[in-house]
């Protein structure tokens, strides 16, 4: 589904990704771990087409297409979803209106007809239940005045409604208490399926106790320095990120 080869990217003139390779198949859950500044969030932003991140070398193929050629909104319509680390507030724009506009833009791209208000409402009710969200959140402006936990939950709720093929979670666990973490994780797990891939970007192993990955990659110095199964996360937790630095040094990533 996603094939990243020798990806180099920089932001504000500084090279962050330095030859990253990653291959994700449908149905898989991958976790990317790494110390601060290793390029985790950069990878998420680059995959979604954020303008400030300049790709200087490498290729990204998504569902057989050149991902880097697509505008951000096209990537979204093609099924890439990013759960933001810091969801943005949009005052005066209703959550429902926003989400319905998004869903219909995606549906139009896929040749589906617009969902009318009633069908949309039904869909959102179902997904809200999944995330144990209060319906009043729907009537509020996008993320405005939401608590940190509510924002993160709203991201996963949007993801559930928009039904992506590749979901990228950027530090979704940060700012969540244990109960919220469990609810969010349940939400993500319920979306796991053979047609969908999930890429979890996280600093801590904690989230991976709830969203159990098929593969874990350690990112350091802009490259993946080690890949393995879910036990790699535990090893990393035990040995700490100093160990990663050693690995990075050995592989010449720094």
């Amino acid at each position: 589904m996603l094939e990243i080869k020798n990806l180099h990217a920089r932001v504000e003139g500084k090279e962050i990704l330095k030859g990253l390779n990653l291959s994700i198949q449908a149905g898989e859950v991958h976790a990317i771990m790494g110390p601060n500044g290793s390029g985790k969030s950069t990878l998420a932003q680059v995959l979604c087409g954020r303008e400030e991140y300049e790709v200087t070398a490498g290729t990204v193929t998504y569902a057989g297409k050149d991902l880097l050629e697509m505008d951000p909104e096209v990537r979204a319509r093609e099924g890439i979803f990013l759960a933001f680390q810091y969801p943005v507030e949009i005052p005066g724009v209703g959550n429902t209106y926003f989400l319905r506009t998004a869903l219909n833009a995606i549906r139009a791209h896929r040749g589906l007809e617009e969902l009318d208000a009633m069908d949309f409402l039904e869909l959102t009710r179902e997904k809200m239940k999944l995330l144990k969200m209060d319906e009043s959140l729907l009537r509020r402006s996008v993320n405005e005045g939401f608590s940190g936990g509510e924002k993160k939950r709203n991201e996963i709720f949007q993801m559930a409604v928009l039904d992506p093929k590749l979901a990228i979670l950027d530090e979704t666990d940060s700012g969540l208490d244990i109960d919220a973490l469990r609810i969010v994780s349940d939400g993500v797990n319920s979306l796991r399926g053979k047609d969908r891939a999930v890429l979890v970007v996280t600093h801590y192993q904690r989230l991976l106790e709830y969203i159990v990955p098929d593969f874990v990659h350690v990112l350091a110095g802009g490259r993946i320095v080690r890949s393995g199964g879910k036990e790699l996360a535990l090893e990393l937790e035990a040995k700490g990120y100093a160990w990663v630095d050693d690995l990075a040094a050995k592989t010449g990533a720094r």
Binding site: C48, G49, R50, E51, D71, P72, E73, R75, A76, R77, F81, L82, F84, P87, V88, I90, V93, F98, L99, T101, A102, L103, A105, I106, H109, Q158, L162
Partner: peptide, 19 residues
């Protein structure tokens, strides 16, 4: 804000108008 809208499939013109 615009990127957030883009990432949800909404193009820039509609995003600005919405905001």
């Amino acid at each position: 804000q615009i990127f957030y809208c883009n990432q949800r499939g909404i193009d820039t013109e509609n995003a600005v108008s919405m905001i």
